[in-house]
Design a binder for these strands. Structure first.
Length: 270
DNA sequence: CTAAATACCTGATGGC
DNA sequence: TGCCATCAGGTATTTA
């Protein structure tokens, strides 16, 4: 389940293998992803990948003629394989490169995407409406406080809204709310300025820590079986229904908020 | 405008 | 052992 740390870990993992490599071949085995893969993606063929960037959970492969936009959805992953390695089930597309390696996309649930744009990436419809990066200075307590005013939506939903801040998925929404001592279901507009400040700081802390831990597995990145390191980190509340809170021993509660499982400690989060 | 529901998809899991 | 039902999850889009 790629959240922002996993996407960033993927970016760092593939970059050494694809940056400044010419794409020798684009192979599409399954064009039906979240949106159909456009024919225009073949423009990437014979282009040099200048860099791999990330905006929100979108990976951006820059070339002189345009940008390939990759989203991992919920079950997507990218790996580097050797040129002669046979594709497996759910390996939907390949970018072969001059260095005799393949950038290969795998996605059982096909919620991911591969798109192509020749416009400046900032003008792309998927990108223009996005809120600030969570780790940037643009995202601070003031921004969050302002975004919460007069909003009745649950605070957990609000921080998962990419128009407000990008990159906060279901796992880290629950985790950061625990660290900030805020109930996930509370109306966003009821948060104080100080609570917004705390929540913002904890979102930044939990995401940076996860990226650091994801980085520990980077050396194994070419191993397709490598699991992202951050899943091994101790989660305080996510997936711990009924188990004792690590801070106060009260059993962790699970509640559906907007069709998403949310986890919290009824004692530590008021 | 906001908020909630819907759509997309497969694999893992649980009940019978 | 098999089969159906349920759930998980990111996010754009549709509906209210």
């Amino acid at each position: 389940m790629p959240e922002l740390p996993e996407v960033e870990t993927t970016r760092r993992g593939i970059r050494p293998y694809v940056k400044e490599q010419r794409v020798t071949k684009v192979v599409i085995r399954q064009p039906k992803l979240r949106w159909p893969i456009p024919e225009s993606i073949y423009t990437l063929q014979d282009q040099m990948i200048l860099d791999v960037q990330r905006r929100s959970k979108y990976l951006l492969l820059n070339s002189p003629k345009g940008t390939a936009i990759i989203h991992l959805g919920m079950s997507g992953s990218l790996r580097i394989t050797e040129a002669d390695e046979a594709p497996r089930k759910h390996d939907h597309f390949d970018f072969s490169m001059e260095n005799n390696k393949i950038l290969r996309y795998h996605d059982p649930r096909r919620f991911g995407a591969l798109l192509w744009t020749e416009e400046p990436i900032a003008t792309h419809p998927l990108i223009t409406t996005l809120g600030p990066e969570p780790l940037s200075t643009q995202f601070d307590g003031k921004h969050l406080f302002k975004a919460t005013r007069k909003r009745r939506i649950a605070i957990k939903n609000l921080i998962m809204n990419s128009h407000i801040v990008v990159g906060v998925g279901n796992i880290y929404a629950s985790e950061s709310l625990f660290l900030a001592g805020i109930r996930p279901g509370i109306a966003a507009g009821r948060l104080t300025q100080q609570q917004c400040h705390h929540l913002c700081e904890h979102i930044k802390a939990v995401l940076s820590r996860a990226i650091t831990q994801g980085g520990t597995t980077l050396k194994d990145f070419v191993n397709p079986d490598s699991t992202p390191g951050y899943f091994a980190q101790s989660l305080n509340v996510y997936g711990r229904t009924g188990q004792p809170c690590l801070r106060c021993d009260t059993p962790i509660k699970q509640k559906q908020i907007a069709q998403r499982s949310s986890f919290y400690c009824p004692q530590c989060q008021q």
